[in-house]
Structures are given as C-alpha cells and as structure tokens.
C-alpha cells in the first residue's frame, strides 16, 4: 500500500459511513535499526495546521482550548482500525465515540441550534 497515495488526505468515514474528516497525518514508530511501523492515523485541525507550519498548530490549539472544545490534541486512530476502501478510508469505530466531531458538536450546540429553523 502507498501510504501517501492511498491513505493520506483521504475522506475518513466511520463504520456507518458518517464523515469524520480527512486523514490529516500518519504516525510511524521508528526504533533503532528497525523498520518503521505505521501505528496510527491522525485527524484534526491541530494536525492540519502543523502540516502548514508548527506556529499555526500552536494558535489552533490555543483557540480550541479557549472554547472548551472536546478535541484538544489530534485524534489518533490505531492503524488496526483503519480500512482503506477505494476512494475513502473507513474507520472501524463510531464517529460519535471519538473526539473528531468536537468542533461540529460544539458549533451545533452553541451556535446552529440557537438559530430558528435549524
């Protein structure tokens, strides 16, 4: 499998097909003299920002903490739960059980639901 071509930046959905974001990062474990092992994928605004520049990651982290949003650090999904499936990557979990929907739920509760007709 080509990690960058078949996994990175792909749409991530949970086992029911609910969108969880995109695969923002891939975590490798590197030991002395051992072959690197893929351990997890990362999802979340902090990870996205750090890909652009670490400085932005700090800023995003500060904002996230400020608003009390659930997802403080990028969410790491163990590689054992990752199932590449064509144009998407399927996570063998339920989106609601993970912190990836932190912003979505925070905005839903504090902003969108307060607007009539939502």
């Amino acid at each position: 499998m080509d990690l960058v071509r078949d996994c990175l930046d792909k749409q991530l959905v949970d086992r029911h097909g609910h969108k969880m974001g995109r695969v923002d990062g891939i975590i490798l474990e590197v030991g002395d003299g051992r072959i690197p092992i893929v351990t997890a994928i990362e999802i979340g605004p902090v990870c996205q920002a750090s890909r652009f520049h670490p400085m932005f990651a700090k800023v995003v982290k500060r904002i996230t903490n400020r608003f009390g949003v659930v997802q403080k650090d990028p969410y790491r999904l163990p590689w054992s739960k990752v199932i590449p499936a064509g144009i998407e990557v399927v996570a063998g979990v339920e989106a609601e059980d993970t912190p990836v929907l932190g912003w979505e739920l925070w905005l839903r509760k504090h902003v969108i639901e307060r607007i009539p007709g939502a």
């Binding site: 974001g21 979505e104 939502a118």
Partner: peptide, 21 residues
C-alpha cells in the same frame, strides 16, 4: 469537501453545523 466535513444542501443545518456556519 477539503476538510472532510459533512456537506449536502439536502441535510438540515443541525446535521452539518460547520457547513451551515
């Protein structure tokens, strides 16, 4: 689409808070 959120003009805003915001 770029960030991988829920998006569809056919869903109610509550189901896609970031999109409607």
């Amino acid at each position: 689409q770029g960030f991988g959120w829920n998006w569809s003009e056919n869903l109610p805003p509550k189901k896609e808070a970031r999109f409607s915001l």
